[in-house]
Design a protein around this nucleic acid. Structure first.
Lengths: 147, 147
DNA sequence: CTGATTGCAAATCTTTTGCACTTGC
DNA sequence: GCAAGTGCAAAAGATTTGCAATCAG
């Protein structure tokens, strides 16, 4: 089953953290919840201002950082460009990034997770977080050619 | 055996690519070859200007990009900050990043590599590159405490 | 009411670029 | 000599921040 972005309960999150439930926060979270891609701050702002033209990019950035700190969403630095965001998932996953389209496919491998734990422990570390990105292109169904 | 940065043969690289063998290039490559950490452009510039104060940061960036394109070195975007560089290694490795010190430990897991191939293929992709970073902290040898 | 939150603009940080001057070949 | 390479300073892209105005609780 592919991960389904279930709506983030921003009201509860605010209440629990003593934060104010403001219109910008509600809208930003809504837009991000509905996104199936992994938008960056500017793209998110573009979408958010469609619903409420008054929201500033600064607020988008501030909200993103806030929610990231609360563990509500995740920030990814794919390749070079701007950071991209997605709702933090209950079950962690990694990413396949199609370099020809920028499209992102999520996947999860318990086996890889386990191997990572093993490696970290062997080096005397405990894992705080990790990130695995596989940059790919569509398989051509042709035999590999050496140039 | 841990990877030993063997000196990059910049003379040959230039010759083969129709590039000029300039003093800045020679020095930048030398400094990067000698680095055991993974310096960013500014840090590299700091070191380079110790040997030749005339070299500009712009040239450092240009040279880094050039050599990266030639596959001579690798650029990493760990966490947030500036990109960090290292000589491209014949045998690929991944990174453990100690969040408390910024120190980087290189490791390699053929098993993980294999699993990645498998995953990519299963999704109909071929891998162009990948990146696995494990962010860690030193194991405290204490039982985990919940706060 | 009052401090948390916001909008705006300016600042910061990282990296790139235009252009005139240098320099390797 | 001449195009590739460089330095400098300005530009660009991403993100952060100071401050006065606004608004949720």
């Amino acid at each position: 089953m592919v991960t389904q972005a279930d709506t983030i309960d921003i009201a509860t999150i605010c209440k629990e953290n003593g934060l104010r439930l403001t219109a910008p926060r509600r809208i930003i979270v809504q837009v991000l919840s509905e996104a199936t891609d992994h938008p960056d701050a500017v793209e998110l702002h573009r979408r958010v201002t469609r619903l409420d033209p008054g929201i500033s990019l600064a607020t988008v950035y501030r909200t993103l950082k806030l929610l990231q700190d609360k563990g509500v969403l995740e920030k990814h630095n794919f390749g070079n460009g701007p950071a991209r965001f997605e709702p933090a998932d209950q079950d962690h996953h990694d990413h396949l990034i199609n370099l020809e389209t920028g499209q992102v496919v999520e996947f999860r491998s318990d086996e890889i997770e386990r191997l990572q734990e093993e490696i970290a422990r062997k080096h005397g570390f405990e894992i705080i977080s990790h990130r695995l990105e596989i940059y790919v292109r569509p398989l051509k169904a042709k035999r590999a050619r050496r140039t």
